[in-house]
């Protein structure tokens, strides 16, 4: 009975020590991630259990993000955490697709997100998702549609990349006013697409480029352009796009695609 009482007293003392003691330690020393190891340390001490450690760090990162999302919205360790996870498990794809967007959007460190994506591409050269995410960050966060389209285009050439990835490339490029490459990409999309829907989208994409250029012509010159040839001659088109089995023409500032019979 005496022993039991002694144990109870000790438990109470322990609980009090922890509760009160934590308040005496400066906040900086209590920072939750002071224990988070360095990359070099982690790589050398896993003893073959890299995957499970990466998983635990993924869960820990989720908890870190959630905690700061509800409080100060500051994430100074986010990149470091994801960097270690990918050191341990270079094929942990959600880190590259979801984690980098968290770094770019929430931590507002798109350069670090791009750095992590470069690492991901080195370790997973066949995946389309990583260059696609890089394109996304360039487009949404860095506002660099030209660079974004380059990465979307690279993603579209990867194995198993959905057809829409190529469309992203053309769309972002068009937004960057790269008319020549946009037209080439739409023609390429038409050529490689087996789906009728995507071929139709490619035709509509080309028609939209032609229409926008004719409107630009009108705005610059003060009169309506009569034909695509005139638009080409005036330097608003690098070439007149042609699709096998059909042709584009301008009529009253409307672009018409006519299929050959």
């Amino acid at each position: 009975m005496k022993r039991l009482l002694l144990v109870l007293v000790l438990i109470v003392l322990l609980a009090l020590t922890e509760k009160k003691g934590l308040k005496w330690i400066p906040k900086q020393e209590r920072e939750e991630l002071l224990y988070f190891p360095s990359n070099e340390f982690v790589k050398g001490t896993t003893g073959g259990f890299d995957l499970i450690l990466a998983d635990f760090m993924w869960i820990e990162t989720g908890s870190y993000f959630g905690k700061h999302h509800r409080s100060d919205k500051s994430y100074p360790y986010l990149y470091h955490m994801f960097d270690i996870i990918t050191d341990l498990d270079p094929k942990f794809i959600p880190v590259y697709t979801l984690g980098t967007i968290m770094i770019a959007t929430d931590a507002r460190e798109s350069d670090l997100a791009l750095k992590l994506l470069d690492k991901g591409m080195r370790d997973n050269p066949d995946l389309w998702q990583i260059p696609f995410t890089k394109g996304f960050i360039y487009y949404v966060h860095n506002r660099q549609p030209l660079k974004a389209s380059k990465w979307f285009l690279l993603a579209s050439y990867k194995k198993n990349a959905p057809e829409r990835v190529g469309k992203f490339a053309t769309w972002t490029l068009y937004k960057s006013k790269g008319v020549e490459v946009t037209l080439l990409l739409y023609l390429r999309l038409y050529e490689i697409s087996s789906s009728e829907i995507f071929r139709e989208k490619a035709i509509k994409g080309i028609a939209k480029v032609l229409l926008d250029q004719s409107k630009q012509f009108h705005e610059d010159k003060g009169y309506k352009v009569k034909s695509l040839f005139e638009l080409y001659k005036a330097g608003y088109l690098p070439f007149i796009p042609e699709i096998p089995g059909g042709s584009f023409r301008l009529e009253n500032e409307k672009v018409i695609f006519q299929q050959f019979q």
Partner: peptide, 9 residues
């Protein structure tokens, strides 16, 4: 708590 990675974890 796996943030969509239950199967892998």
């Amino acid at each position: 708590i796996s943030i969509g990675q239950a199967s892998k974890i």
